[in-house]
Simulated assay, not measured.
Amino acid sequence: MAYFKYGNVNIYYELHGDENRPVVVLLNGIMMSTLSWHGHLSDLTRFFRVLLMDFRDQGKSSKMSKEFDISVHVEDLNALLDYLNIEKVNIVGLSYGGQVAQLFALKHPYKLNALVLANTPARIPPYLQELGEAWKEAARLYDGEKFFKLAIPFIYSDSFYNSNLSWLKNRQKAFKQLLNKDWFDGFIRLASSNLSFNTLNELPSISCPTLLLMADRDIITPIREMELIKERLPQAESLIIHDAGHAAFLEKQEEFLSAVIGFLLRYS
């Protein structure tokens, strides 16, 4: 657990596992942090060295004073890999992190061994843009409990809510205690950073082995959006996680890990 200083930005990162194993970088969704992946580490570190990082304006990394474009995270990650003397990695990008992963694959293909895009779009269609605006309005209330009530139901499937309401209510209380103005302002900047994101025309340039992980109850990144990626990456493999929403990596953690580990082991 450490910080990497890049310009005037401190990027928080964690390295877990045997340094002799292949490196897997896990890139966060927009509301996540390195802590969001800790429940996955025991399985992943059996096979890989795992690099976690918080994007700027996220988790323990520096908070920004003005808006930025999502592409800045690509150079943050690239500089971090150089700093750690890591020449080649596998990347698992979730949602927003998957958008960063696409941009990294396009700009630094020689550093990428294999790619997993989970619940990730290649563009921001009108529905997702409007949902992002709604999230930002909820964030401007600067109230963690209200933000949870207004934003989080979109992330999980209805079946997960029905089966885990007590756990979710405890998470709601935690949001009230943990989220402060800095977190909300950072989230608003992150949610504003990808409005023009669109890699559809560039995707055919990605040549590394790629796995597309979809979920059948994901309304944030519906299967049809990820099928647009599949059409442009015909060599990519795809897998649908059933009875799960946008947070399939938590709702169906075992299935998610089995898919990721099985795929990456074939190319590591």
Rank of each mutant, 00 (worst) to 15 (best):
G93S: 06
L94H: 12
L94F: 15
S95K: 13
G97S: 11
G98M: 06
G98V: 08
Q99V: 05
Q99N: 07
Q99M: 15
Q99P: 06
Q99W: 06
A101G: 12
A101D: 06
A101Y: 07
Q102M: 14
Q102K: 11
Q102L: 10
L103Q: 13
L103H: 07
L103I: 10
F104I: 10
F104R: 14
A105L: 03
A105R: 08
A105S: 10
P109T: 09
P109M: 02
P109L: 02
K111G: 11
K111N: 11
K111S: 10
K111H: 12
N113C: 07
A114D: 02
L115R: 03
L115M: 00
L115Q: 01
V116Q: 04
L117H: 02
A118T: 05
A118W: 03
A118N: 03
A118M: 07
N119H: 13
N119A: 15
P121I: 15
P121G: 14
A122C: 15
A122P: 11
R123S: 15
I124W: 03
I124L: 13
P126V: 09
L128E: 10
L128A: 14
L128F: 10
Q129V: 07
Q129T: 03
E130V: 02
E130T: 08
G132W: 10
E137T: 09
A138G: 10
A138L: 03
A139I: 07
A139V: 01
R140M: 12
L141W: 00
L141I: 01
Y142T: 02
G144T: 04
G144L: 05
G144D: 00
E145G: 00
E145Q: 02
E145L: 09
K146T: 05
F147Y: 08
F148I: 00
L150V: 02
A151D: 01
A151Q: 04
A151E: 02
I155F: 12
I155K: 06
I155S: 11
S157E: 13
D158A: 15
S159N: 15
F160M: 07
Y161A: 14
Y161T: 08
Y161V: 13
N162I: 05
S163M: 12
S163P: 03
N164M: 04
L165S: 14
S166A: 11
L168V: 03
L168F: 09
L168K: 11
K169D: 10
N170A: 08
N170M: 08
N170R: 13
R171W: 07
Q172P: 00
Q172A: 07
K173N: 01
A174H: 04
K176M: 02
Q177T: 00
Q177D: 00
L179P: 00
N180S: 00
K181W: 01
K181F: 01
D182G: 01
D182S: 12
D182E: 14
W183Q: 02
W183H: 11
W183I: 10
D185C: 05
D185F: 00
G186T: 03
G186Y: 05
G186P: 01
F187G: 09
F187Q: 11
I188S: 10
I188K: 12
R189P: 05
R189Q: 12
A191T: 08
A191H: 10
S192F: 09
